[in-house]
Amino acid sequence: MGTAAAVTFRDATDADVDALVDLVESAYRGDSSRTGWTTEADILEGQRTDRQGVLEVIATPDSRLLVVERDGRVVACCHVEHRGSHAYFGMFAVSPDLQGAGLGKVVLAEAERVAREGWGATEMHMTVISVREDLIDFYVRRGYRRTGRMTPFPYGDERFGVPQRDDLRFELLTKELG
């Protein structure tokens, strides 16, 4: 049975905050993240998120922070926010020991379904650090397109990490939701 099998989705509650912070940090920061391919350990040190950041996402109106569980364990999460005709996708994390086995595709598809069926969104937007070519390629294979529209990385705001290079920025990716 593949790792994407037998997962359940539910909305996050305040009781999930510690598990979600741990999950996001494990997927993107430090040595634990290096076992998966989504690591940002070589470009960013410090934190990816914190309790306050996750609580703010949970409390955001017109949004859902989806928790993905398998066998009672939190294995992935993502944030979907309704922004008019489109939805925004973020805070996407898959446990490093389960990456590369299809779970991310399942979570992304569920987020797209939520946006389309729950809010009638016709497009999904996300931003990805532009130097993360492997991650951008993952999304392009799922139907997202690069827009070339860049926004600056928040240098100096350590809530988002401590950059290890000076060329970081975010690129907007979009996908039409059929």
Rank of each mutant, 00 (worst) to 15 (best):
Q47A: 05
A41R: 01
D62N: 15
E133K: 15
R132K: 10
P154M: 05
Y88N: 06
V80M: 13
G30T: 02
E123P: 07
C78A: 14
E25M: 08
S95I: 00
S130W: 10
E171C: 11
G143Y: 11
R10K: 09
F170V: 07
F9T: 03
L177I: 06
K175N: 12
G102F: 07
G72Q: 06
R132F: 03
T38C: 02
A101V: 11
W119C: 10
L108R: 09
Q52K: 14
A41T: 08
T8H: 08
G90E: 08
H82S: 07
P154G: 03
I43W: 03
L20S: 06
A12L: 08
T151M: 09
G84P: 10
E123I: 06
T151E: 12
R116L: 13
V67K: 01
D157N: 09
L55T: 13
I129T: 14
D62L: 12
H125S: 04
C78H: 13
S63Y: 00
A59E: 07
V107I: 05
D18H: 04
I43L: 03
P154V: 02
E25S: 06
E117N: 11
A41S: 11
G36C: 03
V131E: 04
E56T: 09
L66K: 05
R169Y: 08
G100C: 02
Q47V: 13
V74K: 09
G2L: 10
V128K: 02
E171W: 12
M91C: 09
L66T: 15
S95Y: 01
G148N: 14
A15N: 11
V128M: 02
E133F: 12
V57A: 15
E81F: 03
Y144M: 09
L168N: 03
T3R: 07
E171G: 08
V74D: 05
T60H: 14
G90H: 09
A111C: 14
